[in-house]
Design a binder for these strands. Structure first.
Length: 116
RNA sequence: UGAGAAGGACAGGCGGCCGCUGGAGGGCAGAUGCCCUCUGGAGGAAAGUCCGGGCUCCGCAGGGCAGGGUGCUGGGUAAUACCCAGUGGGGGCGACCCCAGGAAAGUGCCACAGAAAAGAGACCGCCGGGGGAAACCCCGGUAAGGGUGAAACGGUGAGGUAAGAGCUCACCGCGUCCCCGGGUGACCGGGGACGGCACGGCAAACCCCACCCGGAGCAAGACCGAAUAGGAGAGCGCUCCCCCGGAAGGGGGAUAAGGGUGGCCCGCCCGAUGCUCUCGGGUCAGGUCGCUUGAGGCCGGGGGAAACCCUGGUCCCAGAGAAAUGGCCGCCACGCGGGGGACUCCCCGCGGACAGAACCCGGCUUAUGUCCUUCUCAGGAC
RNA sequence: CGGGGCGUGGCGCAGCCUGGCAGCGCACUUGCCUUGGGAGCAAGGGGUCGCCGGUUCAAAUCCGGCCGCCCCGA
């Protein structure tokens, strides 16, 4: 029985090559605050990588954004199809203080890959 | 009560569920893994990277020049530009705060204004003499007065004089030197001699003096594995000696070209089918270690005026790597707003700053919420 | 981690080393010229010199400390 809500290193993109691959080959979807890249692949895991550039804010702001996005992915990954890599690039953070805001916007952007 | 001055403390708490990550133990698989339990998991600034060290490497870092830094005195320290205590000067009614080598080594600068901006001089003026009818002009003396400026070559009084002037004198101020006393010292107190005053400001201008500084930085550095290439061009140099050996050859030494030693010079070191430069190609932002026990925290005892030091006991207290410390909820405190009820209670809503470790420490600086202590001044009441 | 540069009218820049007046081009306003516009000519307005302290009689300039932007090297 695999964990349903965990998010270990296995489910995260950890190398620049993986980020580059998803961004170059994946499908691109833009939302008000994010740019999402999704790449289908063979093995059934769902992995995520989050990128918050230096222009977004100070370290506290960037870390906060990453944590909220990680949490949103962790709680909702079961709703997605199997076998895909996701990269989230944060464009700006204005008006995104609450967890529920992040969750809603992420799910909205990932609508095409949700399980029926 | 208001306005201030100095210093200190904390960084909401408890619980539940879902997660992340380091360590220990156990289980499954036994090949990298997976699961369970216990336990640890951001800061006072983790920040800026402005100083100082530790640590690591660099062909041990020696001398001189250059360069950079610091700058009252004494102490503390691994070290400092930091800290403590003191000295002198300045600011403030005060609590307190701020500043700090040398301008009688040299060079330079001091706009405008002003006669003159640093060792020279005189615009107006004052005085004397001469000329002229007069206005005034010429020569000489003078630096008290006027005016300018941020700054004008001591101040007051008296004598003196044609008018004046430290020109002379008294007092005050100033400088240099000497003596006595106190202090480790910066310096302080007292006395004397000399100088009529020659010593304007700026060294965050060049500079002088004293002291300090080798260079890089955990992407340091060590190990393991994988991959690519054993390339092209240019420059310089291809010498001598010794040992082993029958020889092929091997070993050692001295040099050359050239290179290294932060820059330059010396010195030192490396250096023979060699060295250097350029081009081209390749390489994983691979893994493990470094990596957290340290000038360490806490509780005592002792020394010291303090910073701090000595000493006994006790504790182990973050170690990631697209980078862990998060999300949701409840309750209790706290603040603010509103309402009810009324004299200290209930309900609802909102809010909790600055900010996230990246090799580790000691400081500095900057950002920031709340609370506390001591002190000063002003007003009022008793 | 280490190093360098920039910040001055609306825009692009000089002035900073060697302290004293903030200047140049474009743009803007007004007038002339033109039938009108452009061009040209002549006048004119506009700057907390990124911010806060300090040195100095005097700071865009010198010295500290902050802030923002940009660029290198490992």
């Amino acid at each position: 029985m695999p964990r349903r809500f965990g998010l270990s290193k296995k489910e995260r993109l950890r190398h620049p090559r993986e980020f580059q691959l998803v961004i170059r080959r994946g499908e691109r979807v833009a939302t008000p605050h994010f740019v999402l890249f999704v790449l289908k692949k063979e093995d059934p895991t769902r992995r995520v990588g989050i990128s918050v550039g230096r222009k977004i804010g100070k370290a506290v702001v960037r870390n906060r954004m990453k944590r909220l996005l990680k949490e949103a992915f962790r709680l909702n990954k079961e709703k997605l199809q199997e076998g895909l890599d996701l990269v989230v690039i944060v464009r700006r953070t204005e008006g995104l203080e609450k967890m529920e805001d992040v969750e809603r916007e992420l799910l909205e952007g990932l609508r095409p890959w949700r399980v029926a």
